[in-house]
């Protein structure tokens, strides 16, 4: 019997590894097929082009701004100083950052002449785009939470002005495409507001903030519904217990209901914010250079669409996956209590 059980277990385990194998074969088959197809149409892959769109080195020139002669080059390495003498006097150019000095003693110098050069690392277009996506998403998440909290509380209020406002807001925002809303924010509201601002002598507001506003109001509507559901899922007895102790409605909400609702709200909220990060790709349509727009620009320069679209997708995955990890961590922390 024992022997049979062992065989059974072995069979079970080998079957398990068999199906794990099937999974990986499937994954590689998809990748292989894709590669084979691109080879068929003579697409040449240039993955080595990609890293420089994350970070690249820029050459910075140290230039002279006068005419004259190099009188002396004093010191070495970090302490090097090029002294240029002209009819009006002499001026020294410190070469602390320079990797190379391009002039010698006695050289004639014209304004704009490069005395030395160095290289500086700078973020590439993809990294800039990713940072902007992150920034826009974070702003929109913060304002989305604020709007959603207020909206959710208004949604369950007995006051018809509050309640109906919340319902109207949610229904309108949820019922129209985000792209259309972004266009309304940018082409209608932004134009209006900016023109009024200009008329009264203020400076214009950047398109970025209209983009953030569009995303925040969009997310806010969904968060409103999530918060409402979260609050309503807390048993009525909790409010009654709080009120029976003499707490006011807002006190009961703040100390008793919201902290409990928060725990239930967190998972759907995470889903909403992951959607938000992905939806921020639409902001490229109003000339905000977030990740997707940056990718399009990188493709225009590099002419390697396949590599960059995959890279773009992976970068979004990095952002969303990090967010869901953070939320899981928060959930676990709250659950310990």
């Amino acid at each position: 019997m024992d022997f049979l059980a062992k065989i059974e277990e072995l069979r079970y385990r080998s079957a398990y590894f068999l199906w794990v194998g099937v999974f990986f074969i499937g994954v590689f088959a998809v990748i292989g097929t894709l590669y084979y197809a691109t080879a068929k149409i003579d697409y040449s892959w240039h993955w080595f082009d990609v890293p420089k769109y994350f970070v690249n080195q820029e050459r910075i020139d140290i230039k002279a701004d006068m005419e004259g002669v190099v009188e002396a080059i004093n010191g070495k390495g970090k302490n090097a100083v090029v002294i240029v003498k002209s009819d009006d006097g002499s001026k020294s150019y410190p070469m602390a950052q320079a990797e190379e000095i391009w002039v010698y003693k006695g050289d004639f110098i014209a304004p704009g002449k490069v005395l030395g050069v160095y290289h500086k690392w700078q973020p590439g277009i993809l990294l800039q785009g990713m940072w902007l996506t992150l920034k826009v998403s974070m702003y929109a998440i913060v304002f989305g939470i604020l709007i959603g909290m207020l909206g959710g509380i208004a949604r369950i209020s007995k006051n018809p002005a509050l309640k109906w406002s919340a319902i109207t807001y949610v229904e309108i925002v949820r019922g129209s495409p985000l792209l259309v809303q972004i266009f309304i924010w940018y082409f209608v509201l932004a134009t209006l507001v900016n023109q009024l601002l200009l008329r009264y002598g203020f400076s214009e507001i950047d398109a970025l903030y209209y983009g953030v506003a569009a995303l925040a109001t969009f997310t806010g509507a969904y968060v409103t519904e999530i918060v409402r559901a979260g609050i309503q899922s807390i048993h009525r007895g909790q409010t009654e217990a709080a009120r029976s102790l003499g707490m006011t409605g807002p006190q009961a909400m703040f100390y008793i209901i919201l902290p409990q609702a928060m725990r239930r709200i967190l998972p759907p909220l995470a889903g909403q914010f992951i959607s938000l990060i992905k939806d921020s790709s639409l902001l490229g349509m109003i000339a905000i250079r977030e990740l997707t727009k940056a990718t399009r620009e990188a493709i225009t320069i590099s002419l390697s669409p396949y590599e960059f679209w995959f890279t773009c997708a992976i970068l979004y995955l990095v952002l969303t996956f990090t967010l869901s990890m953070v939320v899981q961590y928060m959930e676990r922390k709250m659950a310990i209590q």
Binding site: H235, Q238, E240, A241, P259, Q260, R263
Partner: peptide
């Protein structure tokens, strides 16, 4: 009847 203690 159902105690209604604050669970958090």
């Amino acid at each position: 009847q159902s105690f209604n203690l604050f669970p958090h």
